[in-house]
Design a protein around this nucleic acid. Sequence first.
DNA 1: CCCGCCATGTAACACGTTACATGATTTT
DNA 2: AAAATCATGTAACGTGTTACATGGCGGG
Lengths: 169, 169
Amino acid sequence: MSHRYLVLGLLAERPMTGYDIKKHVKAMLSAVTNASYGTLYPTLHKLLTEGAVEVSEVPQKGRPSKKVYRITGLGQQELEAWLKQPAASDQIRREFLLKLYLARDLSPQQLMILVTNRMDEARAMWRALVAEKDEINNPRQAWVMDYALSLCKAEMEWLQQLEAKIGVA
Amino acid sequence: MSHRYLVLGLLAERPMTGYDIKKHVKAMLSAVTNASYGTLYPTLHKLLTEGAVEVSEVPQKGRPSKKVYRITGLGQQELEAWLKQPAASDQIRREFLLKLYLARDLSPQQLMILVTNRMDEARAMWRALVAEKDEINNPRQAWVMDYALSLCKAEMEWLQQLEAKIGVA
DNA sequence: CCCGCCATGTAACACGTTACATGATTTT
DNA sequence: AAAATCATGTAACGTGTTACATGGCGGG
């Protein structure tokens, strides 16, 4: 239930609507999660019934009123408790890696295509991250960006070595 | 449905039982996936009804007979088609990153604890990977290991920089 | 005029984990 | 005697994605 804490954590910064949260996630945390409306809205409803957030309807001109959620004391407590706990370790769940491992019967040419594709993607990711990093104001966000950039760089170096090895083999 | 291809790909190497597959995954691909019996057996059943694998029961002394699965021509075709397709890009879905981003209200001391914990974990992972790498015979497995090691190293370097920044702040 | 943004929500489906159920054999 | 390994499977549960449903407003 990690989207629960995503929502709680973002609402701790400022009150938001479900729509706001979605936008925020896409803009700032696209490297970490993709949270869709199908998750976000039900999560907000659940947090509401549990008293971790509260809602106020804000009427709008010509539009149905929007629901602005804010975190409660209870929610803050829960968030803080979660933050202090060590994070669960997770895997490198990359489809590309699996393919590489299973690619026993692929020709070196085919393999090379895969690797090159991946390299292109990594480069694109790099550019996107660099662009995003220009628009950053808070330090924690910069940390996350740096993390993503580090991993991206490591992957590109590894891919380059792989290309050399496949070329030789 | 990426476990489908995991199973197909492993069976392309040699016929195996569900139990064998589980062991193999744990030994060789623990960095990439964790595939449990609850996924593996149903996946095998499904592949069987679809004709991508076939099964032969091997009687055993004192034990119920085991079911050895082997890939069919159809299964091989499907596997090859999948391998040739570019891999879907995936995210850095790390709980630790999320915590870091959301840790606005945590004291530097608390933050430091989190970072140190993570560093310990990364070091443990590094050691485990190095140990595993000694027992490797096939090159593709070595690639996967090198990938995991690269990422692990990048993460440790980033963590070290983070520690410095938190210390200063 | 059409497209994209604002804004909320639900339902069907897919996927995966955990725990349970069973039971003999080999190793410590 | 206890624990781990071999070996198969199912059911409940949790979580998440995709697609659908709805509709006004603003800019090109």
